[in-house]
Amino acid sequence: MAEKDYRLSPRVDQVGIQDRVDRITKRSVKSEAKRKGLLMTLNMIDLTTLEGADTDFKVKQMCYKAQHLHDSFPDLPTTAAVCVYPNFVKTAINEVKGSKVKVASVATAFPSGHSSSEIKLLDTKIAVDNGAHEVDMVISRGKFHSGEYNFVFDEIAAIKEACGNARLKVILETGELGTFDKVRRASDIAMDAGADFIKTSTGKISPAATLPVTLVMLEAIKDYYYETGKMIGMKPAGGISNSKLALQYLLMVKETLGGKWLSNEWFRFGASSLANDVLMQIMKQESGNYQSKDYFSKD
């Protein structure tokens, strides 16, 4: 049971949030800072495939890409993780063996979260038993909207328990929450209930991750840190497909939470096409020429 009345979570002013975001998007990231930021971005990506049409073969290809982003550049970092449905965890674990790439599995009746508690727990258990290092769960948005915050809290706490040593990322699906006040409230519930990461979106709902919504969540993480000293990770997911935007996210993290959060231990991008754009930017920096997508593998 939650101890707080989450209706009293701090309020958020959308226009103020947007103003702050505008300040950050006007920053200029140049030369060495840009190169470093781009490499950091690659290393923070959860390379993701969450399609109905996913197959073992597709997952294998993605796992290879996660470890070898561009074969002509052997010194590139790997991505942070690959993110798949529970039934592909085994395959993925096999493919990334020996690398630093983690395997994350979505769970709890992803993406809608509509199922019984038993199924959700079992879903999680299967993922963890199959070796997932990380679990990306979805909250019950319906219950959240009904004001059943204890239900949402308890569910997250139960999944956290089921995760064992796997790190738990809690997807708020912000695009369905409707206001920043509610995003803040859901963030508070998730962190109090045991989330290791809070995550914006499944990628199945629009809008997915945005800078403003991420800022709201980063500020919630900051308050939690102030209060408890415990660091919570952040994962914006969905809709982040170009380098410039990724760098803006990193700046936002740096200016909100400081340098400690700037590693894939505490910050992730959930993305499928971001990696290629970052690679193109890195190539452009190396060669001085603008790049074409045809020269980068689409897996």
Binding site: R27, S28, V29, K30, S31, E32, A33, K34, K36, G37, M40, K222, Y225, Y226, E227, T228, G229, L250, K254, E255, L257, G258, G259, K260, L262
Partner: peptide
């Protein structure tokens, strides 16, 4: 629990 803005990633 002060926020520490020191980082080895700094703007040029």
């Amino acid at each position: 629990n002060k926020i520490d803005y020191n980082s080895d990633w700094n703007l040029d």
